[in-house]
Structure formats: structure tokens, C-alpha cells
Design a protein around this nucleic acid. Sequence first.
RNA 1: GCCGAAGUAGCUCAGGGGUAGAGCACCUCCAUGGUAAGGAGGGGGUCACGGGUUCAAAUCCCGUCUUCGGCUCCA
Length: 613
Amino acid sequence: MAQQDPLYAMRHSLAHILATAVQHLWPHAKFGVGPVVENGFYYDVDLGETKLSEDDLAKVEAEMHKVIEANHPFEHFEKPVDEAIVWAKEAQQPYKEELLNDLKRAGTTVAKDLNAAELGTIAEGDSQVESVSFYKDGDFTDLCRGPHVENTGKVGAFKLLRVSGAYWRGNEKNAQMQRIYGVAFEADKELRQYLNMLEEAKKRDHRRLGQELDLFIFSDLVGSGLPLFTPRGTVLREELAKFSNELRERHGFQKVWIPHMTKKDLYEMSGHWAKFGDELFLVKSQETSDELVLKPMNCPHHTRIYASRPRSYRDLPLRYLETTTVYRDEKTGELGGLSRVRAITQDDSHAFVRHDQIETEINNLLTAANELYSTVGMELRVRLSYRDDSDAYLGDAGLWASAQDQLKNAVIANELNYFEQEGEAAFYGPKIDFMATDALGREHQVATVQLDFVMPERFGLEYSAEDDSQQRPVMIHCALLGSIERFLSVYIEHTAGRFPVWLAPEQIRLVTVNQEEETVSFADKVAAQAKDLGLRVTVDNSNESVGKKIRAAELMKVPYTVVIGEKEIRQDRLTPRIRKDMEVVAAHPELNFEEFFKTIANEAKSRVSKSSL
RNA sequence: GCCGAAGUAGCUCAGGGGUAGAGCACCUCCAUGGUAAGGAGGGGGUCACGGGUUCAAAUCCCGUCUUCGGCUCCA
């Protein structure tokens, strides 16, 4: 949000008022930073032994309201940096003192390297920082860039939402402070709308829908971050993977298969061991002295298939495709639902290409990604993820620059909406990362295309060129869904579990009006017809009222429900009940079962999201 | 891994030092039904796990596991 925005000043002022309230309640509080964030603000505080819980938020809010009612003016003034340091010492604010000292030492060059949170206290300017900015409301003075509103009464509607831990300056080696989060809007109405939106988001939470729609489970006995997929959830996984594969098979990708464990030597050679060694699962043989690891990625295995025989320039591109699970020992606190798991299924592919083939190959993959995301109805934009000048990257700097250029050219040629970011590359090469926007406007990282000159080098991959010289291929890594688990977490929330026909675990439910033999056998007979067309159909002939069975189908978000009773049996005519969210493009007044099933089968085959009934 | 919160029936949750509750789901029976809940009855829980305090622990304390909100990290 721009600093000129009136909401910005308001939220910034609220952060200040929050600090004021904390100071009133805990006079020895030490303050970190208190920036404006999306929809609100937070302040990091160090209260020594005192640990805040969510119950304390009401108390803090009440104190904030006192400050607001007092309607103090915000007095703005500046001090030279040295004087500000003296102020921080006297006020016993060590965190502010540290920031000021850093600022004095290196000016804004360093200030810009600090994350956005720190910038909240620093005046923008040229490299020489002369003075810093302060605001005072009544009895509390804070180092702060501002801007603020005129007085504490003019801050609109806010609510403190949560309190959590946060490391000082985002570094886990530093002290952990307590972060108090609030949201703020100009008026009550907007605040209420926002809180309602949060409620909506909660209803769409993929963990909740995963339970309600019977898609996946976790078991304490299996372990954290290790989801188990039910029959319904497995349909989703397989249909998605099938689509992702088809999109690449049409560009010459071939499926391969690799085992899920390997000697660690493979990763010592690839460089992954040095970088991610402590996140690998170790597997010890009880028969031999073998010490294996579960694969955390697939590229090194795939290079072994490439290297298994001499390759000619005529063989390239060589394209391997595999939807397979990798295992990463994520820190426990980072796991959550399907968004972050320890068994991660990637729709992974690796193309081994000559330099002159890079552009075409990347174009094909960008086309595939576009088709996939337009089919699932999500807006895409891409991030060009470049290296920065840290030593976290392998390989020749010249190769990096050329790779980064080629990615950018391909993205521009495909007219993709893009932005560039340094420091987001993989250690072996730059990436095109796809960000998809979901129905609630949230952006998620999904697909990725990565150019890699390093892995072929490390594994000594070669091919014989026309002039019989040995040349090095380039590897292009690609995952269109990213990880199936992560994609599902995003997609379930995007659709609120209302899957299009091609993905719906249960496409048609036949509900019998009664349990008479004639009704049930008719339902079974037409269900068999539907199954012959490859449709996923179930029959609900349970001993319940029709209303109740309709309700059950509705709750499971089944796209088509058909009630079967005397009318249907006698006339071979039906009136399907179409899930409410589905847009109907053609009205069929009278349908028989065969027409109905064929229409649905076509819908599924063409992966359309509308109902063609 | 760190800070904070939590774990009671398949699910959603109430209770809380003195032998465990509701709704839904499940099972049985009655009702044979027409597009979002028909009726009656019944089964089901070592109150996450382990240890401690106590005459007595689901309840209090400690540890472990798991989950949630964040931080950090993300090939």
C-alpha cells in the first residue's frame, strides 16, 4: 500500500496507538517495529517474562480505545541520528537503538536490505541519513517514519486479531518477540465485511473441506505431514496428474519411473546433500551396511537415465515425465494441512536439450501451463526468479546471466504478465514461477519452469554433436501443478469443493424414491450404463426420505443428482438436479438416460466447467 | 526448530477432582417416500499417550505425540 494512502496513515497510527496501549499496560515493554501490512498493522514487542495470550487482546484493545477517546494530537518532530540514539538509550529501547546504530553506520543502503518491517522506522532518503522522524501522542513517543493521522481520534475501525511469536529482524538466531496483529478499515462496515470474508475463507479451508468431502485424512500413527488420500481424494489426484501429463505428452514427454530411495552419493554429486542434507530422511538397511536416503527430488535420478547410454544431438530433446512422491523432512512447525507436507507428489519433468532448443522447449511448457490454469479457472502471472550475488548458487555467472535472459525472452514472447525478483532462484538455476490467483483473490505459487546448466555439469552429461564433439545438454525442470498436495490445498479453497465434472469424485448420484426391487434394479441398470461411458456414478438406495438423500448429495457437492422413481422407469425421461453453482449453457427440456450420460461424459472429456444440459 | 493455543464418540462440540453428555453419522424396527433433515429404539469413548500429585484424575502438574495461529525455512 502506498504511503500516501489515507488508510496507510491510519493503520500506521494504529500501530503507534497499539504501542502506546502496550506501554501503559506493561511499562517496561521494549518495542521492535510496527509496520503497516495488508489489511492492517502489527507491532513487535518484548515484554520480558510476560507472555501474551489471545485473551489479553481484549485488554489491549480497551486500552487503545482509551487512547483514541483522549484524542491526542500526533506531534511530529525530527532529531539528528546521534540524538535519537541518546533518546533510545534513555528510553531503554534497545531494539530501536540497534536500528538507529545500523542506520548511522551504513545509511539507507543497508536500510534497504532490511526487510520491509524495519523500514517502518527509517526515513527514506539518500545514502547519508541526517535525521530520523518521531511521533508523539500524549505521553508516548515512538521512532517512526510516519505518516500519521492528525490525532488519535481519527483512526477508523480496527480489531486486534491475534498474537504470535516473531524473531527480531526475522532472524531465528535473534530474540523472539511477541507480535500483536490487528486489522483496520475506515469504517465499521468495511471491518465487518473483512471479518465476514475471513469467516468465508474458514468455510473454504481445505482442511475442513477435506474432512467434509471425505478427500484425505491424517493419522497420528502415520505421522505429521503425511496425508492419506481416500478414494474420493485419489480421484482428484489422478485426474489432475493425468491432465498435467497429457499436456506434456503431446510435446514429446515420455513417462519414466524411478525408485523412491537412493544412495546419498547421488546427492553429494548433485550438490543437494551439501545444501539440504539435514532435511533428508535416512533409511538404513538391516541386511547390509547400506545407508540410503528417501529422494527429496527427482532430477538426479533422471540424469542417470539420460546418462545410461551415449546420446546424439539427434536424440535431443530427451524428455522425461513422472508424477512421483518426494520426501522432505520439513521442520515440524512448518507443516500444515496439504499446503506443506513431508511426502510431496510432484508432476515433475526434465527435458534435456541443446542450447538452440531452449526457447522452443520453454515455449511449449509455458503453453501447457497456460492451458492448465485456464482450465481450472485461475489467473496466472509469473515471477522471474533470479539469483542475487550471495554465494548460495552454483555454476558460472556468465551462464546464469544468459539463462536469465532466455527465460525472460520466452516469458515476453508468450505475453505473460510477469515481474522479476532477485534471490528467488534455485541454487542450480533461475526459474519461472507461476503465481495463480484464487477465487478469494489470494495468490499462490504453483507451477515452475527452471533452466539448469549446473546439474548437467555436475553429472557430466554429454551428447555427440554433428561435428563429433562432446557437448553438454541443458536441463529444463518443470512441474505444472507444482506439488499435487499443495495444488489441491489451493484448488479446494478456490472452488470451495465444488469441483467441475471432470474432477468431481462423484459425478452423478442416482437417488431412488423407494427401496422396491423394480426401482433399485432400474437404478443399478442405468448406473451400469453410465459406468460404461467412464462416468463416476453412485446409487443411493438407502432407506431414507428422498429429501434427506437429496440433501446428502447436495452436501457432498455432487454435480448431478437424479431422482429415480416410477416416472423415470416408465418413461425413460429424467430431470437432473444440477449443482447450483454450475452455469447451464443449453437447456434440454426432455432427456432420456442415454442422452444425459453421453452429454456428461463429453463434459468430463472436454474438461469444461459449465453444464451443457 | 522457536513463541502461543488446543486435543472429550466417526464428525461438530458441551462438561470438568467423586465412574462420561448432546446433535449429526452408524445399526435395528416402523413408515414406501418425488428434489436440502419422516418417526421410534439401540450400539459406540482407557476423555491423545506416558508419568506424577491425591483416598479419588478426563479434570491439577510434568514429559511425549498430534493439531491450530504465527516466526524462520522452502530444492
